[in-house]
Amino acid sequence: MLGRVRPAGAVVLIETAFAKVNLALHVRRRRGDGYHDIESLFVFVDSGDVLRAELRDDGVLALSIDGPFAAGLDDGPENLVLRAANSLKLYAWPTPALANTDWGAQFGANLYLTKNLPVASGIGGGSADAAAALRLLNRLWRCGLDDAALCAIGETLGSDIPACVISRTLRVEGRGEALAPLDLPRLAGTPILLINPGIPLGTAPVFKGWDQHDRGTLDSSSLAAIIDSGRNDLEAPARALVPEIGAVLDTLDAQPGVLLSRMSGSGATCFALFRSGADIDAAHQAIRRAYPDWWAMRGTLR
């Protein structure tokens, strides 16, 4: 690493923070450390927040945020994007002797986050942004780290970040750190519609409302099994806090061509998988007309 030559001139790279969706989320138990053991199937949409990074050679990390959901977000050192950037830098140059080399301490970045996804909405949010920062700065700074190293860094920052680093279909267990890639036939390329009623919902209150009843393991052997026997154990406590989730799910269920509709994560975003592009087009237009205040995003699964 010390023998590398710093790239010359301005360098700007772009990374998408792909929206995360839980096709199913089974909560198995509350652990002694305060976390919950889960079994979940994570999938990722081909759209999300967008992060750009511009190389700077003075060691400074600066973050600017724009986009439809930028209001109220902190662009200071506690933002997960900057925390991820600093963690990557510390991992790549762990000692002052390395950090003070030409390749180390002088490496910084101007980071620009376009926040397209609602905040506190159960579809990745800050975790996806932090993961995008790790992937992006790993390329910008030419750290050469593999996904395993980036996931290890991400795990220190948040339970969902390792999965968001990979951003491919995964079976997720433990508190989110046990990841197993899955290749389920007919899943990639499936049209998906995300709907949020416009009400932020924190993760902690939803988990606190879980009834602590273990309803059994997750069968992730096929998409059919996910549809037939999967569930989201956090839907009931989320709906108790935000009853509008029920209206969103009822509206999605009523659309022609729906394969599956559920709440994602701890809510309040819900989703529907559709049989065809024509079906999702019709549903997207109908819901936008009927509920103009709801946030809606259509995409396809990666």
Rank of each mutant, 00 (worst) to 15 (best):
L187E: 00
N116P: 09
P96K: 14
A8H: 12
G76E: 04
G277K: 12
S121L: 05
D293V: 12
S167Y: 01
L2R: 12
P191S: 12
A180F: 05
T16C: 03
E177G: 08
V12W: 00
T190M: 05
S266D: 10
H36Q: 04
L23I: 08
P118D: 13
R168I: 08
R31C: 05
H36P: 13
I195G: 10
P162I: 08
A105H: 12
D253S: 15
G125C: 05
E54H: 13
V60I: 11
D219S: 13
L259A: 10
V21Y: 09
A204E: 10
T203L: 11
R239Q: 15
T16S: 07
D102S: 14
T203E: 06
V60S: 12
P191I: 12
A97K: 13
I123N: 05
G126N: 06
F18H: 15
P162K: 07
H26K: 15
A188D: 14
A105D: 15
R30E: 06
D293K: 13
D102F: 08
W93G: 03
C164N: 04
A85T: 09
A120F: 03
R52Q: 00
A268L: 01
V5E: 05
H26E: 00
T95C: 02
L201M: 08
F207H: 00
M1S: 10
A180Y: 14
L134I: 06
E173N: 13
R231I: 13
V60N: 13
E173G: 14
G32S: 14
L73T: 06
V242M: 10
R171H: 04
D66E: 06
A236R: 14
G202Y: 08
S47W: 10
M1L: 10
V12T: 15
A247N: 13
L117Q: 01
L234K: 00
G125H: 04
W295F: 12
L301P: 03
G216V: 12
A148S: 10
G174V: 07
L179H: 09
D49W: 02
G176R: 03
A92C: 13
D66A: 10
G67W: 02
K20S: 00
S222L: 02
A19H: 03
R29I: 00
V258Q: 06
P96I: 03
V165Y: 09
A130G: 05
D49K: 02
R215V: 03
A130K: 07
R83D: 11
E54C: 12
R186V: 05
A283G: 05
T169I: 08
D75T: 09
F274G: 06
D160N: 02
F69H: 06
L259G: 03
D293R: 09
W93N: 11
A240K: 15
A53D: 00
G59W: 11
A8Q: 15
V21I: 14
L140W: 05
D233N: 10
N22L: 04
L82R: 11
W294R: 10
T300D: 01
